[in-house]
């Protein structure tokens, strides 16, 4: 059931936990599996803009069939791949301000885990 795998990723998925290198001030997201001695955890703001995006017309059933996916440039620097939600394809554009929301990513079946994590949606006015 890969319970441990999902559990291990919760910091990044639930609250955008990334890593900052204290020497270079570089922020990495998701954080590296093996952090170095100069890495510290940092919670990213979840604000950013759409750097590029695409529609996946024939997605896995587990991902809800058709969905939009984007590369989001976070204000802290990292480029994150994530689904877009609460938006229609004709309302998406490059440079659009977006914010992170926590949503259900996958339902692993009646006897399986519900997997939650980040998606992005257009910034609420």
């Amino acid at each position: 059931m890969e319970l441990a795998k999902h559990w291990r990723l919760k910091g990044a998925r639930y609250r955008l936990e990334g890593a900052r290198d204290r020497r270079t001030n570089t922020i990495t997201f998701p954080p590296p599996h093996f952090s170095g001695p100069d890495d510290e955890l940092v919670i990213l703001s979840g604000r950013g803009e759409i750097w590029s995006w695409s529609a996946v017309e024939n997605g896995l059933d587990a991902w809800g069939g058709r969905y939009l996916v984007a590369l989001v440039k976070l204000v802290e620097g990292p480029l994150v791949t994530a689904q877009l939600t609460d938006v229609d394809p004709d309302a998406v554009h490059i440079g659009q301000p977006v914010e992170m929301v926590t949503r259900k990513l996958r339902d692993l079946g009646e006897d399986g885990l519900l997997v939650y994590g980040y998606k992005f949606r257009p910034l609420l006015e």
Binding site: G64, D86, V101, T102, R103, K104, L105, Y116
Partner: peptide
């Protein structure tokens, strides 16, 4: 609620 929403996701926001 959308297909990716439930009590947990709404409570978080």
């Amino acid at each position: 609620a959308g297909t990716d929403e439930d009590t947990i996701t709404m409570a978080i926001e």
